[in-house]
Design a protein around this nucleic acid. Structure first.
Lengths: 239, 239
DNA sequence: GAGTGGTCTAGACCACGGT
DNA sequence: CCGTGGTCTAGACCACTCC
């Protein structure tokens, strides 16, 4: 995809790790050997290896080398059981699938009460969009999203029904830069019991998701509430 | 702490962002200006700025500059409501606080059934440790941990009662390198109802946490089950 | 076109691991 | 002690944003 040298090297090394060319617990070739092999500078090699570290495939140890991490059950779970692809796709990006239905679309002004709840200031003009995700007839996930109108510009119900983010890509003069998430387990409220197929369960998972534009401005604040036993989140941390 | 140049610059810029010297939505000084100011090379400046990006404080845009992200409610939540400090401290590191009690400590061999559940192979000799965290008399969190004996070496109940990780720091010849986590919301089982003060709730949060040594070997596999409404996890992602 | 961040090079020195 | 990864330098060129 990218014609970046470091990215190509990263991809190649990743494949080789995945194929088991370097066994679990073994070392990658040293940086100097990789410099030889890829005919590039050491910094570029290091950039590629840094990427492997971030992904949780290897761990660099000063004075020893680059250790390949044993594979675990977790690695197999990565793109399964429901739909949370790690955390990156947690914003509205993928929420609009064929199985996602628009429940409500309104324009309103942020009240003092709502300002307490979300990261927008009172008086700000916003769109509120509620959506329901149904899979195999089961109500799995309910989203309540707030978008700043001052950033998004005027939209109609048709846009809200489709993908807001596809609309931004083609019609807006800004990009989505980053997002932050808060994840909790909470007791279900009356809304949850009617909006979701909870069965015997009386709790839901909640993910609060804040999205930034590439101007550093808060753009979207979304609450995702989902039923137990269907979704999984995965993360990796280096010490 | 670290006498690394890039780390000092990162810390200083971070403070300045926090103090609002660069307002939300404004730009940081350009890389060349920072090179001037800190009398260093551009790569070092870039390393510091990369750190700020990872932390979710700024976002670099090619051709424009380094944008400071608006602060949000999420930022204030970071170290509150319970005890999950982001994800880094999720392994056993901090679980052994004054309020954490050892419930069970046994040595056993991984059965075929257990091997299905955790990332260790059948036949492996392991320690199983169960702990309960009580806060203000409330049973909040229940941990079931499995440690590879072949890596940890022989330990007794006294070590298990204290901090395993403090023990490793001082007595073991390996370090903890990385960890992976899976987070879910699941229906409570009979164990949960007796082990935790669930109140009216019939679900729990579960975090499965896998820890690696700096030799790339799976070392610990822990299941944390906790009550609703008390804990929060925060994450940040760049697009 | 001027200025920005992104990639890359070719070198240097240091801190640590293992022998 | 040697070899490893970690930090840092001083430069170059490119891709992008904005005027």
């Amino acid at each position: 995809m990218a014609a970046n040298k470091f990215f190509d090297i990263y991809t190649q090394l990743k494949d080789e790790v995945r194929e088991g060319i370097y066994n679990d617990t073994m070392l990658l070739p040293t940086e100097l050997e990789l410099v030889e092999r890829f005919k590039t500078s050491r910094n570029t090699i290091r950039r590629a290896i840094a990427e492997l570290n971030n992904e949780g495939l290897v761990h660099s140890v000063k004075g020893r080398g680059v250790v390949v991490l044993e594979t675990s059950k977790v690695d197999k779970v990565f793109f399964r059981t429901g739909n949370f692809h790690g955390l990156k796709e947690l914003s509205s990006y993928n929420e609009i699938s064929t199985s996602s239905k628009l429940i409500d679309f309104t324009e309103l002004t942020v009240s003092e009460a709502l300002a307490e709840l979300i990261s927008f200031h009172a008086g700000e003009r916003i769109y509120k969009i509620e959506r329901l995700r149904v899979i195999n007839g089961k109500k799995m996930m309910y989203d309540t999203s707030y978008f700043k109108k001052s950033i998004l510009g005027p939209i109609d119900k048709k846009v809200a029904t489709g993908s807001i983010y596809a609309y931004i890509d083609t019609h807006a003069d800004f990009k989505i830069a980053a997002s932050k998430s808060i994840m909790k387990v909470v007791s279900a409220n009356a809304h949850d019991f009617t909006n979701l197929d909870l069965g015997e369960n009386n709790c839901v998972g909640e993910i609060e998701n804040i999205t930034y534009t590439d101007n550093g401005r808060l753009f979207e604040h979304t609450f995702i509430r989902y039923i137990p036993n269907e979704y999984v989140m995965v993360s990796f941390a280096q010490h």
